[in-house]
Design a protein around this nucleic acid. Sequence first.
DNA 1: GTCTATATAGTGATAGAC
DNA 2: GTCTATCACTATATAGAC
Lengths: 193, 193
Amino acid sequence: MARTAGSHSQITGPRVRAAALKLFSDQGFAAVSMRAIAQEVGVQVGALYNYTRDKQTLLFDLMQSHMDTLLRAFEDNPQAAADARLQHFVTFHIAFHHDRPDAVFIAYMELRNLTPDNFARIETLRRRYEDRLEAILRDGVAQGAFDIVDTKITTLAIIAMLTGVNTWFRPEGRLSLVDVQTQYWDMVRKLVS
Amino acid sequence: MARTAGSHSQITGPRVRAAALKLFSDQGFAAVSMRAIAQEVGVQVGALYNYTRDKQTLLFDLMQSHMDTLLRAFEDNPQAAADARLQHFVTFHIAFHHDRPDAVFIAYMELRNLTPDNFARIETLRRRYEDRLEAILRDGVAQGAFDIVDTKITTLAIIAMLTGVNTWFRPEGRLSLVDVQTQYWDMVRKLVS
DNA sequence: GTCTATATAGTGATAGAC
DNA sequence: GTCTATCACTATATAGAC
């Protein structure tokens, strides 16, 4: 879509982020040029630098924004039964990740393209999310609801299992998302019992 | 390591593959230049083309070789008890993937950098491996040893869970690989019961 | 805010000398 | 089999016109 000169700051910023999200997810950060992002947005390449300091910052902002959204979206209730809290985590994780496959893909695949500083910041956020799940498992063990050898390993195993749904689930497929949530909760429930 | 002109076909070929494996794993296929591979090997860039038609073929050969090795390495015994076969799969998968983290990383992360034809070939091999696990689960259900709602989903969930070990396991860490194998088998065993 | 033009450097791949 | 030199492009980022 060709554009002529003019002011579009209100809409161009989000469009740059959306274009980068899509292209980074499809082709990978290193394979996507600033020119390709500009073309997707419909501006010339120079205009992008009104919205990001450089390409690295663009990637970091996308990942940080994703992790912030994740941490804010998950609401745990430490007063509830551990079983209910774990079921909530499972269904939440599957639904949240299903809703934003591009951001999830980038957050897992482009870690090595972050500068060391940026990498450390994203890892801190990821750790914080894992700790939310581990707290549930620990409380469940303390209450006698769960039988778990090592809550840290179980945390990582459950998250890997749940996140894997994104690699194969298709809405037009054999199963609905609710089916998937139900089956994964069934597996997780048995895994911690 | 500087080299002068001469014949080294016996050793250069494997060195090119080893260098590409390491660099693709560390930085990603798109971020690695043929010049960087040549420098790692210790030759000039033109010499690489005696060992690969182009960069894409180099990537494909690495992934195909990894999947071939995986399929040949896993030996199932359909006569044995489903429980023992599943335990063997779990310990095998963890050990095999632990032994070659670079190849595993590439096989999962660089799929989108394959041409459509090459992608289809790798996917066929991956599917074949998944089918080996699903056959075990199916037989176990038929024998009444396992209680599984959907063998396909359970297959994908188990593989995602096991492969996730590579993202965090460090030999110098708190747990030995045998500890990890034991704990994952414990989780998988409960998951299918 | 967006444009065009440009600086500077790097890319994959090939040709031909040795 | 490896080297050097080169082609034709593409890359990120910036400067200054409008």
